[in-house]
């Protein structure tokens, strides 16, 4: 019981208190603790990463051996891993080598396209979100429309009223982003900050123990 439950709680408490105290103590020892905390974290991370790689490989090998639906794609995924390792071993990791070219022309291209694909889905989501069913939905619609028009040159082109000293779409978008949007974001940030503060305290004091696996 002590080794499985109490010792981890003691480790959390001691490491938490030491790291909190070192922030407030301007001594060389604090710097030493901070520097080594970073190094220790990296060293633990090395083995945590092995766990992740093992999990990835196991999931795909299981799919292949069990001939699960779409198992052929698991071969492609595993082949991609092997290809990158072999490319790095043979050719190194220089910018002109195969390793970086595989990454830039395949992985980076696909990732950029996946994110650009969201332009279509976010547009259809906008159609649903921007329906003016209440006065608050109208506020959302107006804010979004002004921000969108304020981010493109055509917004300023349409802002004919600027001749009368009125703000352009760009100016209005900047004001919305910097004032009401900032106020809403700040309230959310304060909520997140207070929530994080309570969570860290609960962890250090041993109230929050879900990391023990529900025991």
């Amino acid at each position: 019981m002590f080794w499985k439950k109490q010792l981890p709680i003691i480790i959390v408490f001691l490491s938490g208190v030491i790291m909190t105290v070192q922030y407030f103590v301007p001594l060389h020892a604090s710097e030493f603790v901070f520097d080594n905390y970073i190094k220790w974290g990296i060293s633990i991370g090395i083995f945590a990463a092995i766990l992740g790689y093992f999990s990835f490989i196991r999931v795909h090998i299981m799919k292949i051996t069990k001939k699960a639906p779409n198992w052929g794609y698991s071969i492609v995924a595993l082949a991609g891993v092997v290809l990158m390792i072999v490319a790095a071993l043979i050719d190194g990791t220089d910018t002109n080598g195969y390793y970086m070219k595989f990454y830039l022309y395949i992985c980076a291209s696909i990732n950029a396209t996946v994110f650009s694909l969201l332009a279509f889905y976010i547009s259809s989501a906008a159609y649903r979100a921007f329906r003016a069913r209440s006065s608050q939905a109208v506020a959302l619609l107006l804010a979004a429309t002004i921000v969108m028009l304020g981010r493109v040159p055509i917004g300023d082109y349409f802002s004919f009223w600027t001749h009368w000293g009125l703000p352009s779409f760009y100016d209005m978008a900047q004001w919305i982003l910097n004032v009401p949007n900032m106020a809403a974001k700040r309230a959310i940030a304060l909520g997140v900050g207070l929530g994080s503060l309570l969570m860290t305290l609960k962890l250090i004091l041993g109230i929050e123990r879900t990391y023990l696996g529900g025991e």
């Binding site: 492609v76 595993l78 991609g80 990732n111």
Partner: peptide
């Protein structure tokens, strides 16, 4: 392909 290459 991107999952495999990204992981590699």
């Amino acid at each position: 392909v991107t999952v495999g290459i990204g992981m590699g």
